[in-house]
Simulated scan of single mutants.
Amino acid sequence: MKLFTCEHCGQTLYFDNFSCIRCQHELGFLPDKMVLAALQAQGEHWVAVDAKPGEPGYRKCANYSEHNLCNWMIADSDPCKYCVACRLTQTIPDLSIEGNKTLWHRLEAEKRRLVFSLMRLDLPLDPKPEPDADGLAFAFLSDDPSKAFHEDDERVLTGHAAGLITLNIAEADNAIREDMRQQMAEPYRTLLGHFRHESGHYYWDRLVQNSEWLVPFRTLFGDETRNYQQSLQSHYKTGAPADWQNSFVSTYASSHPWEDWAETWAHYLHIADTLETARAFGLRVKPRVEEAEELSTGVPFDPYRSRNFEPLIEQWLPVTYALNNLNQSMGHPDLYPFILAPLAIEKLSFVHRIILDHREHKAQPE
């Protein structure tokens, strides 16, 4: 994630800021410019404080003006009342239930981080207007609070189907999510990770299925036509193969080629966004051990715009090594508790090539 600067006073700003802590200017993220701008009112609309005369103005997203949970803006020429991130949400939690607004706030905040990354990668973000239409949509649902949970009861499951990503809002409750992580014996479970994983399923449909990439996908990830439900049942019954780390980024990735792709896709987004954050902070890793020269890094390039994947992984390994050791110094578990074997890295490179191919085809004139 980038760092931003207040154009009015020069204060450092962060992606989720609503106002500048120094000059108190209201802020708004401008998706068409990918900047967090200090705003000034101009009639019923808003313009950036450094806007040139005659430059088009903006309106606040309805979730900004009505709920103060989104800081994104909408161009005056756009008739939609919601920003490009919020308009993807089809269903929100019941806000009459205590605590749901807080959970909704967390969901939308992490979803905006996902959307930011997808925009940086020039990936399609068309909203899904109705169930049978193409496009991307989100539904934030909760279990029926009037029913006690039993094993056979239907629960809201986080997942993807035909462009609709559903998240159980309980995942936004840190205590519940941590309990689920321990029950599932997972080393890592985050709300942003859910968004990234489920978006991987959507982009498999958009970028791989029915494309020239399908055959090489099967060569690398396996045959996705094998029974999905049986594969998951087998995974939950017997677990991952003993040598799973030789081929997969996680145990869950070993359950089925679709999950392998989604887990790999999520890890690719982890890498790109974390490296951009490291670059924004000028992070330098240079161990004071002569034998550890290979762990030196400085992230000297934009990870979202690299044509080759190799520089990303070359920078990623030293960054994660440093971050894991910093976490251990504070008594916390590893920040990035994964080992990337050569085959897993090859799969990450495959994701990179598909994204690059889409970007280059998008840039070509029709």
Rank of each mutant, 00 (worst) to 15 (best):
K2C: 01
L3A: 05
C6D: 01
G10C: 03
D16N: 14
N17Y: 12
F18G: 09
C20I: 10
E26H: 06
L27K: 10
L27M: 07
F29P: 10
L30M: 08
V35C: 08
V49S: 02
K52R: 12
R59I: 14
C70L: 02
W72T: 05
I74W: 00
V84K: 06
T91V: 05
P93N: 01
D94W: 09
T102E: 02
L103N: 00
W104E: 12
R112W: 09
L114P: 04
F116V: 01
F116L: 05
D126I: 10
P129Q: 11
A133D: 12
F140Y: 10
S142M: 10
D143H: 09
D152W: 13
E154P: 00
R155W: 07
L164V: 04
A172Y: 04
D173G: 15
N174W: 07
E178D: 11
M180E: 02
M184T: 13
E186C: 02
L192R: 10
F195P: 03
E198S: 12
E198H: 13
S199P: 15
H201L: 07
Y203T: 01
N210F: 09
V215I: 13
Q233K: 09
T238E: 15
P241G: 09
Q245V: 04
A253T: 11
S255R: 06
E259D: 11
D260S: 13
T264H: 01
T277V: 12
R284Y: 06
V285H: 10
E290K: 02
V299D: 11
P303V: 00
R305K: 13
S306R: 10
R307D: 14
F309Q: 02
L312K: 04
I313N: 07
E314R: 08
V319G: 02
A322Y: 07
N327A: 10
N327C: 08
Q328H: 12
M330R: 04
G331K: 13
H332R: 06
L335D: 13
L343Y: 10
S349L: 02
F350N: 03
Q364L: 11
Q364T: 12
